[in-house]
Design a protein around this nucleic acid. Sequence first.
DNA 1: TAGATTGTTAATCGATTAACAATC
DNA 2: TAGATTGTTAATCGATTAACAATC
Lengths: 211, 211
Amino acid sequence: MAKNDHISMSVVRRLPRYYRFLYDLKENGVTRISSRELSQRMGLTASQIRQDLNCFGGFGQQGYGYMVEQLYAEIGKILGMDRLSETVLLGAGNLGRAIANHMDFEKRGIHLAAIFDDAPQVAGTLVRGLQVEPLEKLEEICAAAHPEVAILCIPKEAAPAIVERLLALGVRGFWNYSHYDIAHEHPEAVVENVHLGDSLMTLSYQLKQEE
Amino acid sequence: MAKNDHISMSVVRRLPRYYRFLYDLKENGVTRISSRELSQRMGLTASQIRQDLNCFGGFGQQGYGYMVEQLYAEIGKILGMDRLSETVLLGAGNLGRAIANHMDFEKRGIHLAAIFDDAPQVAGTLVRGLQVEPLEKLEEICAAAHPEVAILCIPKEAAPAIVERLLALGVRGFWNYSHYDIAHEHPEAVVENVHLGDSLMTLSYQLKQEE
DNA sequence: TAGATTGTTAATCGATTAACAATC
DNA sequence: TAGATTGTTAATCGATTAACAATC
């Protein structure tokens, strides 16, 4: 499918946004769109949109534009939304429970198979219909579910040991809310960090500049 | 304080990570560090660290390195961690409540003054010691608290009207978990988007590439 | 066909890395 | 002083924008 084998992360990080805009266009009954009109709606240049899309193939039609539904489907495939990755969630504190309940996992290519936490307040409770399991059952449950993704909503201190166990169980990707630097310690892992505190501090910086 | 008046967002987004690493070094009793050693710990180049820091001033000492505690304090000041921004949270669903309970707001320069939600399940309940207020009290409460930041944990459809009201009340910065494109609609606002679904989709993309 | 818009190459801009003189 | 390491300039690399030929 890919025209080039290496696509820069700058491009990849724009794909989900294209995907969302195209979904909205589709829902609003728009069937075709030019790079120029999409660029105006998204606040990008038309040139960038055409460059981005052409990393993956010629999805448009010269003189005409892009078919919204087809382009939406193509980007979905590129992002891997045409299958579900088995996934386990580590940590059922405030954040872990909110992620479990809030995310549209199936629409994001994820199937949540199990949730783990040792804390007595949550152990055994139901979260999104799943019983929170103790960590000692990690190996047993993962041997059956074969997760390739783990979501880490655990404290930094707990992360190193759990990451080791998950890697040994075949987990390849981490959606990492902890401050443990998985990518640096395990270069073979695929890591997407979500550092909410960092994001908030960046907002603070920008506010300060405006004064 | 700033040497240059415009600092690129590429640099700014690295600052919170420096801040975290320096905090850990400080906690571990490290008093000074060279750009080379920090670069090895963080997985950056020494050159980039020196370039980044020099956007804001000469914090190091030639032949010696950087004083950890001093550098930590300087970056904190640059990020605005030396004061608290009054902040309101909109939306006390799964995500809003988790954000309220989970974030170390005070350590991130934020004071959470009020939480708003109209849903009957949460209206009037206590979240992080604050009573969830109905949206009709937004103007009254903001007139007293003068928030400059709003955290949006509300659905996309609810966002446009609420953003208008918040801007009219003097809010300048938005920590935006919704899919409403504030920055595009209101170029004068400072916006930091947190699009968790987008982040998860980029993880999915990266996993797919590895196969 | 004429008009429109893509796909793609070339030009520009910005960010990162390398090199080294300044200096502690 | 000699050694180390910064601050800063220059070189490289990568990403974005502009331009235009291809083509629907």
